[in-house]
């Protein structure tokens, strides 16, 4: 009798979740809503890569394009923007930080610049076979004011996090389940998702989501 009651209760809860889905979850969390003053057109600068001999920086950048675009931002194509920088001798992030915001707006039409740094656990996964954790940090500077509008950190799963998360973070639910699965196959992808959409300071939803 008792186990049947439990089953009924569980089925009722299932029903609640199935029908309301993310509305139910969203109600319990302060999901940042679209902020019209927030930069919507983003320029991504090649990350500072502190994992020598790895392509973690390039992978993080590629996955950042995916995550930010799905979150509703227009992301300027990084291979093209990087090539423009390189042609003019700007190879390092610090150099790009010194460029006048007005110039970046004028050339790229960018509203915000994202500066990324990638770090790792230091394990050479090619030797040991253990997948190295990717730690990413990022900063978004508003080119209209020159001020930092957002800062965040994110890690790949198993990159030092103790609690294994069953539920995606509320902002991560903007990313469809099937894409989340693909993202989670890559350490850089996980780090990018956690960086931009996780925990304490997720980015607000971008202006180009067709919801």
């Amino acid at each position: 009798m008792r186990s049947r009651m439990r089953r009924v209760v569980l089925l009722v809860i299932l029903g609640m979740f199935s029908s309301s889905g993310c509305t139910f979850i969203g109600a319990n969390n302060s999901t940042p809503r679209f902020n019209q003053s927030f930069p919507g057109v983003l320029l991504l600068v090649p990350p500072v890569n502190r994992i020598p001999g790895s392509s973690a920086g390039e992978n993080l950048l590629a996955w950042s394009v995916v995550i930010l675009s799905e979150a509703g931002y227009y992301v300027l194509p990084p291979a093209l923007t990087s090539e423009v920088f390189a042609r003019h001798g700007f190879k390092r992030q610090e150099q790009i930080r010194n460029i006048a915001p007005e110039k970046l707006r004028r050339i790229f039409g960018a509203e915000g610049v994202v500066y990324l740094t990638v770090d790792g656990t230091g394990i050479n996964h090619r030797v040991s076979g253990i997948r190295a954790g990717v730690h990413a940090s990022g900063e978004l500077v508003d080119l209209r004011s020159g001020r930092t509008r957002w800062k965040g950190r994110g890690e790949s799963e198993g990159g030092g996090r103790t609690a294994s998360k069953l539920l995606p973070e509320p902002m991560q639910m903007m990313i469809s389940g099937e894409l989340r699965m693909k993202v989670s196959e890559s350490a850089a992808g996980q780090a990018a998702m956690n960086l931009f959409l996780n925990g304490d300071s997720p980015l607000p939803q971008g202006p180009y989501r067709r919801d």
Partner: peptide, 24 residues
């Protein structure tokens, strides 16, 4: 039910993320 929050990706990505990484 949770994955139903965003049913489909906004965009079709295909090889794009790989191409970006390689291009860089």
């Amino acid at each position: 039910s949770l994955s139903g929050c965003a049913q489909h990706p906004l965009y079709a990505w295909g090889p794009f993320d790989d191409v970006i990484s390689r291009a860089l």
